[in-house]
Design a protein around this nucleic acid. Structure first.
Lengths: 340, 340
DNA sequence: CTGTTAGCGCATTCAC
DNA sequence: GTGAATGCGCTAACAG
């Protein structure tokens, strides 16, 4: 039925060795390309292995050798979020370059779930962890329970532990976006963002605040909304702002959800109303096809994953303790003028 | 420095057993909740385990017991595609319910890469595989190299092997979309799709063809484009069709890329030209904010992942051989009228 | 260059 | 109810 007509049982190195009349060690050495074995013997072994279709059991190998498992854990809140899935793609690409694969762990934004997921991945013997933390406290990602595994935090700096991290230039990107609005003459600029408790929430707000300060514009609470909500809430907040007696002439939205909420709020406005400019963090698919001009802070989420992999494997390679490192991914401002 | 001031070395069952003056077996039994152990002893063990923060080594456990690894491999072409990442989310959710996790394997649409990825995942001891096949031939997913591992194909039926699969109702969804265009009075309906060599390519075209036949409309080659291309190519094909002397009054696009290409082609048209209706397979984010009416064939990609998990674990649970099963995910037609 | 011994961490099997 | 021996598949460490 196939090229090899052997037993359907899983082959072990002993089986291969027995057919060749050699010891399992010889097979082991040949398979790993270890030197100190005759070229003729090696070829004989390799031929037999190919003929039999034998494949070494990687788990057993790892158990004995104590070497790396070539498995990296990725812990995110929700892989359906395109930013996380793109991060996953970048991470996986780099990991494969190091001979490793990625195991998924979703937390659903629940810090308790995150703890469990992390513990489980450690038990499974991952060589390292890339975590987009769900909560504010990261002490459970520290040395104790983690068998001194390398950890890289993504999109958030470590709090209470010393580990590597990969950040987006939240402050810089947000400031640039706000500067552009200012440069276009806007003085009343609304901000729709996340709560200050989140890193991105505070950093992106800080960029907004600094840009305004540079322009000599005072912060106005009525133009600031910082909530942890969905698109519906974001749309509501935008509408409320636009209904003010002296509404903002521009909006700065600090993430995807807020941008989409703002877009919907702006969508329904009558032709004769003054147009409201919109700038937001995170790129939007099909942004060029919307009939509203939009400026976005864009970056490559896959780059976060690649950078995280580099940090992980560099740390794994070095024997001496390294100080925690921090990589920041640059952002660029992209303008989508309204079509027509 | 921590609650337990033990050696930093990884603890083994022997260490726990030694501190308690019992045998490793007692610890093993207590940990697995196996019966045949005194309640007092069990509690003593569990307490010590908790105090020490000991965690059993899952790989060693699997090696000896020969039991499942609680690891499922997911092989897709590109996780950045939202349909695959949503599939991954559904799969992971279900897997966690069975105590398993998901390992990623990306192929980049390269059948050769797919073979390698599959082989590697098998070597790593996954209990099963969910594969969105990149190629046309699936024989490498058959019994031989796969240690009789359960395999579920997603979005494509098995060719040359007998395994379970989860399909989308490509034919039905496409036919419904075309029927709707017909119901709205369209007779010249263009089709932008994938090559017939792909399952979705042929099925979605078949839905189109059957709906036209039902309406007594003959197929017209000039209104049919079936290419394996990107958005740019799709847009070009759409433009070419619309430039015909008697252009189609409606377009049916068989997937995401073609829909977006068509949208761009329609976008640039002058106000005074006759509007062209558009219906497409796959939902589109922000579709309701485009200024073109759009009808889409929608379905839940996560449902594919969940169904695949069910097939996998049901097959794993049964000892007797089961015939291959086929699950089809239903589609619904969604109308996005143009805003305003 | 090749083989032998031992053991990774745990669980099956059989004693007691 | 508990413990001792044995082995999962493979590879360090040491023989020869």
């Amino acid at each position: 039925m196939s090229a090899h007509s052997e037993s359907e049982q899983t082959l072990t190195m002993r089986d291969v060795a027995a057919r060749l009349g050699v010891s399992p060690m010889t097979v082991s050495r040949a398979l790993r390309g270890q030197r100190g074995i005759g070229e003729a013997t090696r070829q004989r072994v390799l031929d037999e292995v190919a003929a039999l279709g034998y494949r070494p059991n990687k788990r057993a190998r790892g158990l004995r050798s104590g070497g790396p498992n070539e498995l990296i854990g990725l812990v995110v809140t929700n892989l359906a979020n395109p930013f996380y899935s793109q991060l996953a793609v970048g991470l996986e690409q780099s990991c494969v370059g190091y001979g490793a694969r990625v195991v998924l762990g979703s937390t659903g934004e629940d810090p308790a779930a995150e703890r469990e997921v992390v513990a489980d991945l450690v038990d499974r013997g991952v060589d390292g962890l890339v975590v987009v933390p769900a909560g504010h406290d990261h002490s459970h990602l520290g040395g104790e329970g983690l068998r001194d595994l390398p950890v890289v935090l993504a999109a958030s700096p470590p709090m209470g532990i010393d580990v590597d991290c990969v950040l987006v230039d939240d402050f810089g990107g947000s400031r640039e976006a706000c500067r552009r609005l200012v440069a276009r003459g806007h003085r009343r600029i609304g901000f729709l963002g996340l709560p200050p408790s989140l890193w991105t929430g505070s950093e992106r707000f800080r960029g907004y605040a600094v840009a305004l300060e540079e322009a000599g514009i005072a912060l106005d609470e009525r133009y600031i909304s910082r909530h942890r909500g969905d698109r519906v809430l974001a749309e509501k907040a935008a509408r409320a702002m636009l209904a003010l007696p002296d509404p903002p002439t521009a909006l700065l939205t600090a993430n995807n959800r807020n941008t989409i909420g703002a877009l919907r709020a702006l969508q329904g406005r009558a032709e004769d109303e003054k147009p409201v400019a919109l700038a937001g963090f995170d790129d939007i698919e099909l942004a060029d096809m919307l009939h509203l001009p939009l400026t976005v802070v864009s970056y490559d989420p896959a780059e976060i994953g690649r950078a995280a992999a580099t940090l992980l494997f560099e740390r794994q390679a070095s024997t001496v303790p390294q100080p925690p490192r921090r990589v920041t991914i640059a952002t660029t401002l992209v303008d989508y003028p309204a079509p027509r």
